[in-house]
């Protein structure tokens, strides 16, 4: 299926969970926050939250800033 990940189109396996996506991207041990269609997906529900086709997924982290 296709999703929009951080603003770019991306093919990912069907029936992927949020946790699965994080794993797929090699970000398992990264401190991040995830939003699907502007709704936060809490880390505690990563394994049960299923990504759907055309979902808009944002993955963010802390970077340097004032």
């Amino acid at each position: 299926m296709n999703i929009i990940l951080n603003g770019s189109s991306r093919e990912v396996p069907d029936n992927l969970t949020a946790g699965g996506l994080i794993f797929e991207l090699g970000l398992t041990n990264t401190r991040l926050a995830l939003e699907v269609n502007q709704q936060i997906v809490p880390r505690s529900t990563f394994e049960t939250h299923h990504i759907k086709p055309d979902d808009k997924v944002e993955i963010v982290q802390a970077i340097g800033g004032g």
């Binding site: 951080n6 603003g7 991040l32 993955i59 963010v60 982290q61 802390a62 970077i63 800033g65 004032g66």
Partner: peptide, 19 residues
């Protein structure tokens, strides 16, 4: 203070992180 920005999906996941 820190800023919140998109994770660079292409980047090496082992790259050091601000935190």
């Amino acid at each position: 203070t820190v800023a919140i920005r998109r994770t660079n999906i292409g980047q090496n996941p082992d790259e050091p992180n601000l935190l």
